[in-house]
Design a protein around this nucleic acid. Structure first.
Length: 483
RNA sequence: GCCGCUAUCGUAUAACGGUUAGUACAACGGGUUUUCAUCUCGUUAAUCGGAGUUCGAUUCUCCGUAGCGGUACCA
C-alpha cells in the first residue's frame, strides 16, 4: 500500500508519542547502533551508552543494532565476545539486529566486513578523494593546501583551507570544529582505521542516530567529512557525557572500583537497579521520581533531555537503589535470586544443603540487607556451627556479671518453650523475664551473641524458631561453657 | 601548546528571565524498631569569578578560571 510522507510522519507520531519535528532528518524508522570493541571487559560507561541507544530505539519504535568493532585482530576471541553478549543480556538490553540474531544489514562483526570496506574505499578512490603516502591511504579534504610549521608537534604540516565542519548535536546543539588536515583511512599494513570503518558501517547499516560518548565529539568532524565525501546523509549525532571516577581526576577507567559490569554481576546486584541508576546518570524524568519502571523511562526518554555535563559515579547511591529494588522484590524471586547467588559463592554449599531452612533464612534477610553480597556474612551462622563470636560484642555483652546467669536461665527454660512461632517465643522469653523481675532486653543481647555471634540480625525470636531447640540449646551452652 | 565540550549543596540533579533556589544519596542529630537494618522527623550544605543585556540573570552574551575530552598509521 502506498503511504505518503505525511502519513508516515503522522503514524510515527501517533505510534511513538514523539514530537514530529524530531523526525525532520529522517523519513524512516530510527536505527541506532551500539558498537563495542571486544576487549574482555564491559565498562560501565559502555553500558550507559548501550542503554541510551536502546532507550532511544525503544522510545521511537526504532531498531537497536549491535555491531562488534573487532578490527584489532590480535586481541579478539569468542570469550571476549561473550563478555559483551552476557553483559547486554544481563542488563536486559536486547538487540534487534546483530550477532546471534542476524538482520538484513550483516555481517555485524567488522572482522567479517572486509569486502564492504574495500568496496567503499573504491568509491572514495573513484571520486578522487584519496591518495597514497608512506604506504597508507589518506582521505583528501577539499580546498587549497598550505604548509605551516607546528610548534607543538615540531614539524611542518600540510593544512587545507576549509570552512569549519558544523555538527548539529541533539544534546549539545550547534558545534563547529575545524577539520583542516588530511587523515589516514587505511594503514600501511592494509587495515582500515576506526574513523573509516565506523562511517562506512553507519552508512551501510543506514544508521539514523549516532549516540555515543563525548570522547568522540572531536572525531565527529572527521566523520561528517567522510559522510559528505560518500554523498551519504549525515546521521543525527548525540554525544552523551562521560562517567567520571568517584575519587580523583579523569573519567572512569577499567581499573577503577565499580567500572566493570562483570563486577556487579558477581556481587549480586540486581540488573534492574543498576539500569535504573544508570538512567539517572545524565538523564532525569524532570520530576522527583527516581525508582522508575523501565517502561516509564522508555516513554519519557529523549535525546534533548540528556544532560551535557559529565557525571561522577556514586556507589552509595547505587547501593541505595539496589536496596530499594531488593525490598520491593517478590519474596519468591528474592529466594530464587539468592539461591543463584549462593550457587556461585564458596559459602553456598552449606547454605543450600537444606532448602527449607534456606528459604526461611532468606525471608528473614530480605528486609535487612542492601545487596546479595552481604548474605553470606549476614546469614552464615544459620548454616554453620563453627561461626565466630565477634570479640568486641562478646567482651561487651559478657562484661556484665549477670550475663552468665541469664544464659543459665534461658537454657533451663528452653525445654518447655513453644518454638513453633515467633509470638510464642516472645511470650516465653517475656514470661521468663517477668518471673525474674527483668525485661526482654536482659535476655536478648546474650541470647543473640550465643546463637549468632554478633549483635545485629533478624529478631531473636525468628532466629530461635529457624534454628530449632537443639541447636539453640547447644549454642547457649557453648557460650556458657566458654565464659 | 592547539581544538572542542562543560560548570547549582560533598555527589546526582530540579527550577517559561521573577521561587524563602526544590528533590534524592551521603553526613550529622532525634523518633520508631527491646539488636541491627528498614521506616520516619529534622539539621548542615550550592548557583565558579568578573563584566554586559534587562525593571529583574542560576537561566541570555562576552572574558577569565577550573574540570573533562581530543590532538595517532588506538578504538
Amino acid at each position: 500500500m502506498a503511504l505518503t510522507v505525511d502519513t508516515c510522519c503522522f503514524l510515527l507520531t501517533v505510534l511513538t508519542k514523539h514530537k514530529p519535528q524530531s523526525f525532520s532528518l529522517i523519513m524512516s524508522q530510527v536505527r541506532v547502533r551500539f558498537a563495542p570493541s571486544p576487549t574482555g571487559f564491559f565498562h560501565i560507561g559502555s553500558a550507559r551508552t548501550a542503554l541510551f541507544n536502546w532507550l532511544y530505539a525503544r522510545h521511537t519504535g526504532g531498531v537497536f543494532i549491535l555491531r562488534i568493532e573487532d578490527t584489532d585482530k590480535e586481541r579478539n576471541s569468542e570469550q571476549f565476545l561473550n563478555v559483551i553478549y552476557d553483559s547486554l543480556r544481563w542488563l536486559g538490553l536486547n538487540w534487534d539486529e546483530g550477532p546471534l540474531v542476524g538482520g538484513a544489514f550483516g555481517p555485524y562483526r567488522q572482522s567479517e566486513r572486509a569486502s564492504v570496506y574495500s568496496e567503499y574505499l573504491q568509491k572514495l578512490k573513484t571520486a578522487g578523494r584519496t591518495y597514497e603516502k608512506d604506504g597508507a591511504v589518506w582521505f583528501k579534504l577539499l580546498g587549497e593546501r598550505y604548509e605551516v610549521y607546528d610548534e607543538h608537534r615540531k614539524k611542518t604540516v600540510t593544512k587545507v583551507k576549509v570552512a569549519p565542519t558544523a555538527i548539529e548535536d541533539q544534546i549539545r546543539g550547534h558545534v563547529e570544529r575545524l577539520e583542516d588536515e588530511d587523515f589516514v583511512i587505511v594503514r600501511s599494513d592494509g587495515n582500515p582505521v576506526f574513523h573509516f570503518v565506523n562511517v562506512v558501517d553507519d552508512i551501510a547499516m543506514q544508521i539514523t542516530h549516532v549516540i555515543r560518548g563525548e570522547d568522540h565529539l572531536s572525531n565527529t568532524s572527521k566523520h561528517v567529512e567522510l559522510f559528505k565525501a560518500f554523498g551519504a546523509p549525515v546521521p543525527a549525532f548525540a554525544h552523551i557525557p562521560l562517567i567520571l571516577k568517584q575519587n580523583g581526576p579523569g573519567k572512569m577507567s577499567k581499573r577503577d572500583q565499580g567500572a566493570l559490569i562483570e563486577e556487579y554481576q558477581k556481587r549480586g546486584f540486581l540488573p534492574e537497579a543498576l539500569v535504573n541508576f544508570l538512567c539517572l546518570l545524565g538523564w532525569n524524568p524532570k520530576d522527583d521520581r527516581e525508582k522508575m519502571l523501565i517502561s516509564d523511562v522508555i516513554e519519557l526518554f529523549d535525546l534533548p533531555g540528556v544532560n551535557q555535563s559529565n557525571a561522577r559515579f556514586d556507589e552509595k547511591k547505587l547501593a541505595h537503589m539496589n536496596m530499594a529494588y531488593l525490598l520491593a522484590l517478590p519474596t519468591e524471586r528474592f529466594v530464587a535470586e539468592a539461591k543463584l547467588f549462593f550457587q556461585k559463592h564458596p559459602a553456598g554449599v552449606a547454605a543450600l544443603a537444606q532448602p527449607e531452612v534456606f528459604r526461611e533464612v532468606m525471608l528473614l534477610a530480605q528486609p535487612k540487607i542492601k545487596g546479595f553480597e552481604e548474605l553470606p556474612a549476614y546469614t552464615g551462622y544459620f548454616f554453620n556451627e563453627d561461626f565466630v563470636l565477634d570479640p568486641k560484642v562478646k567482651d561487651k555483652v559478657m562484661a556484665k556479671p549477670e550475663a552468665k546467669t541469664r544464659l543459665g536461665e534461658l537454657i533451663a527454660a528452653l525445654p518447655s518453650m513453644d518454638l513453633s512461632n515467633d509470638s510464642a517465643i516472645e511470650e516465653a522469653i517475656k514470661h521468663l523475664a517477668t518471673s525474674n523481675s527483668l525485661g526482654f532486653g536482659d535476655y536478648q543481647a546474650v541470647a543473640r551473641l550465643a546463637v549468632s555471634g554478633t549483635n545485629a540480625g533478624p529478631s531473636i525470636t525468628s532466629i530461635f524458631r529457624v534454628l530449632g531447640r537443639t541447636r539453640v540449646e547447644q549454642r547457649l551452652s557453648r557460650l556458657l561453657a566458654l565464659s
